[in-house]
Nucleic acid binder design. Structure first.
Length: 475
RNA sequence: CGGGGAGUGGCUCAGCCUGGUAGAGCACUUGGUUCGGGACCAAGGGGUCGCAGGUUCGAAUCCUGUCUCCCCGACCA
């Protein structure tokens, strides 16, 4: 760990790649486009899973698991769906030493194979709603990959639900979007914009797609989660029908929604700094590292005894705590290391502290030393972590808000192309959207619920626009 | 698929142009001194130089082929 990270100012991309590897979050593998998620990175994923899983259960969903391999013919049943995913599929043509009658695709998402099951499970309106979630890996062959943000194989969660009416399905779609918003903001301390995607950005096979969009420190947008109102598209393709209250057969109305390990990338690019990873306490597993400082054997015995006692108290307060008593490293080395790997709070404890009955506490995000009486250490640690959680969110929100602009002409839009989020009027024509992307690199992110939709004039054509949509450069 | 770069101890890389006994830093092992912001000294261990052919008395180095990864574009969570 001798060399430091590339600074964000030097190169945001390099900083990111450096950080991911030096904080031991992930490694490249020998498989093209695939990454190894190391224990430090996987621990973050486990915390994301734990929290989201509880939120899904609290909203009535159950977990299930469906096959990794999907008969190719399934994908083809929904025209728009197969067209959208065809270029990204990995296909299994041989197995058991022989060529297969029908190839399998490795799931890029599971709408099709899950609908096969749904159509068997559902007979009556009494069977509805069906609320299923799956934690799984998926594979989408990508031309270009980036650790956590876009890899060929990634881990995610996909929710799939069936409802009796369009209204119910729409309500579910928005409810889960709001679960994502709550999770992003309250746990990841990452402010997000909820809204509806444009036609060209929507999921292949959906009627409508909604997303949460976050701003990274380089002012680029990152789609952090999506929720789709699938309408009856898959129900019709797979004949997922039920007998309704009217005695007649109806196709179910469906939703699907997902977030992936991409969230880890979002977390890094939202909060981390030039010293390393910064993780909000509510999503961290490493809350406190106690660094004992001593020279003589007598000091060692005294300091370690106190450090272990303090650690035990902190553990009782449900904090992830470790005493870093590795004698082959000096204290300075440990400070730097814990900053790199994103330990939320550092407690320094040495002979001088024991004499005074204090310790030194340092928040990872602020890195300011504070002397704290040992008798108050646990309360203080909890308080500092809570404050850190709030401060990280507020800092990220202030950053996003100060880099969000209303623009009223195409000229202004071009000038501010790298400035952050641009709220602009657009006539909803995909050709105009494509032209803007071609000429400025900006894409539509979503039409925010929080921005009042007032009619205006498209910045490119001058034609009528229903309201402002977010444009930004995106990951 | 285009365009670039790279494959040499665990890691980062030098050596290649101009062929001649495989190097450095970090990490690791042992001993000692250190320890409140990335310590130091000494002694060690560790590499079929991506793979396959070829040229040559001799190849990490030259030639041919091949595989893989990374970066930049088109595709995307």
């Amino acid at each position: 760990m001798a060399e430091k990270l590339t600074s964000r100012a030097q190169g945001f991309s390099e900083w990111y790649v450096d950080l991911v590897q030096k904080a031991k979050l992930a490694d490249y593998s020998d498989v093209k486009g695939c990454m190894v998620i190391r224990p430090n990175g996987y621990a973050i994923w486990e915390n994301i899973q734990r929290t989201l899983d509880r939120m899904f259960k609290d909203t009535g969903h159950q977990n299930a698991y469906f096959p990794l391999l999907i008969p190719e013919s399934y994908l083809k049943k929904e025209a728009e769906h197969v067209e959208g995913f065809a270029p990204q599929l990995a296909v299994v043509t041989h197995a058991g030493g022989a060529k297969l009658e029908e190839p399998y695709v490795i799931r890029p998402t599971s709408e099709t194979i899950i609908n096969r099951s749904f159509s068997k499970w559902i007979q009556s309106y009494r069977d509805l709603p069906v609320l299923i979630n799956q934690w799984a890996n998926v594979m989408r062959w990508e031309m270009r990959t980036r650790l956590f943000l876009r890899t060929t194989e990634f881990l995610w969660q996909e929710g799939h639900t069936c409802h009796e009416t369009e209204e119910d399905a729409e309500a579910e779609t928005l409810k889960m979007l709001d679960v994502y918003r709550t999770f992003a903001e309250d746990y990841m301390a990452m402010p997000v914009i909820t809204g509806r995607k444009s036609e060209s950005e929507k999921f292949a096979g959906a009627d409508r797609t909604y997303s949460i969009e976050a701003m990274m420190q380089d002012k680029k947008a990152l789609q952090a989660g999506t929720s789709h109102m699938l309408g009856q598209n898959f129900a019709k393709a797979f004949d997922t029908q039920f007998q309704g209250r009217d005695g007649k057969m109806h196709h179910v109305w469906q939703t699907s929604w997902g977030v992936s390990t991409r969230l880890i990338g979002a977390l890094i690019m939202t909060h981390s700094d030039d010293a390393g990873l910064v993780v909000p306490p509510r999503i961290a597993s490493r809350h406190v590292a106690i660094i004992p400082i001593f020279k003589t054997p007598e000091e060692k015995a005294q300091v370690l005894e106190k450090a272990n006692a303090l650690a035990a108290e902190l553990k009782k307060a449900s904090l992830g705590v470790m005493v870093d008593d590795d004698e082959t490293k000096g204290p300075g080395w440990k400070y730097a290391e814990h900053e790199l790997i994103g330990t939320c709070l550092r407690i320094e404890l040495g002979p001088k502290d024991l004499a005074k009955g204090t310790c030194v506490m340092v928040r990872r995000d602020e890195r300011k030393k504070e002397f704290v009486p040992l008798t108050e250490a646990v309360d203080k640690a909890r308080g500092m972590l809570e404050q850190m959680q709030k401060d990280l969110f507020e800092k990220a929100r202030a950053f996003r808000d100060s880099n969000t602009f209303e623009v009223n002409s195409y000229e202004e839009m071009k000038e501010k192309a790298d400035a952050g989020f641009l709220l602009a009027h657009w006539n909803q024509d995909p050709k105009v959207e494509a032209r803007i992307k071609e000429e400025t690199g900006l894409t539509t992110r979503n039409r925010p619920f929080t921005v009042k939709q007032e009619p205006g004039k498209c910045v490119v054509t001058g034609e009528s626009s229903p309201g402002r949509i977010v444009f930004a450069k995106a990951y």
